[in-house]
């Protein structure tokens, strides 16, 4: 790979400083998106700032109606964590379906959320579970955080500290996964709260988005029957070598029904 400098800070302040002084710098969490991007020269950082040793970026805790998960928590940890399983079992199942076991041992929640790949799984959970994204500078509601393909509300050098998921009455994720990459061709996360239902779709469009028609129908009647025949408008969806927009629009309805059944 192209050479770069490497910093291993132990605190958020030192990480921010290393980033600011690192030229074209990038934070590395699990590295399972960033390192392939550097290999293929999609990214050419001067400095990598490793967040693995920064204090305060791990840990899982329930606090009232929020489940807080540290940014550097791996998918494997979320998959097997008893607090997650008790509060939001659908979130643990989502984590268990990311990549493969070796990838889940390295990949992190914060890394996924900071990168915001349009076919990643976690953004659907963060958005549907009305989460708070807390950073070293402040916090964002999920509705304001995701801003389209690989775009987020994060400023340059801003570090995700932890994610606070709102604990639902019921929730589940269903994805039609690409058999080779294991990314979502379409993934739908459904979350039922006392004050309504939230539905988020990933993989289908240029970034994760909420599905207003499905939310309205399910808030009245949380059943597959309530959304039978409902499809997305394919005008805004992706067409690529894997699937057409029309196929993704159809799949979204199928995944929605699967998620409702699993919730």
């Amino acid at each position: 790979m192209r050479e770069f400098a490497y910093a291993r800070p132990a605190s958020l302040a030192d990480a921010a400083s290393a980033f600011a002084n690192g030229g074209e710098a990038a934070f590395i969490a699990g590295g399972h998106t960033l390192l392939p991007a550097i290999k293929s020269r999609l990214r050419m950082p001067d400095t990598l700032v490793d967040l693995a040793h920064v204090a305060g970026l791990t840990g899982i805790a329930r606090d009232g109606d929020r489940l807080w998960i540290g940014a550097m928590t791996t998918h494997a940890t979320v998959t097997g964590d008893a607090t997650v399983a008790a509060a939001i079992p659908g979130l643990a199942r989502l984590a268990a379906g990311i990549g493969d076991p070796q990838v889940r041992n390295r990949g992190t929640l914060g890394g996924v959320i900071a990168n915001n790949d349009p076919a990643a799984d976690y953004p659907a959970a963060v958005l549907a579970l009305d989460a708070i994204v807390e950073t070293d500078r402040g916090s964002y509601a999920a509705d304001d955080y995701f801003q389209g393909m690989f775009a987020t509300a994060l400023a340059d050098g801003e570090i995700v500290r932890r994610i606070g998921f709102r604990v639902p009455q019921a929730a589940a994720y269903a994805k039609f996964r690409h058999p080779a990459s294991r990314y979502a061709v379409v993934g739908v996360f459904v979350a039922r709260f006392a004050d309504g239902v939230r539905v988020a779709v990933t993989g289908a469009g240029p970034g994760v988005f909420r599905w207003a028609d499905a939310e309205a129908a399910l808030s009245t009647d949380f059943s597959a029957a309530a959304v039978k025949g409902l499809t997305l408008d394919d005008g805004d969806l992706n067409t690529d070598i894997h699937a057409s927009a029309e196929f993704r629009a159809h799949l979204a309805g199928v995944m929605l029904a699967d998620a409702i059944a699993a919730a």
Partner: peptide, 11 residues
């Protein structure tokens, strides 16, 4: 177990 092609030695 991890994939050593996607990990820096310094990590």
């Amino acid at each position: 177990a991890v994939k050593s092609c996607t990990l820096l030695a310094v990590q």
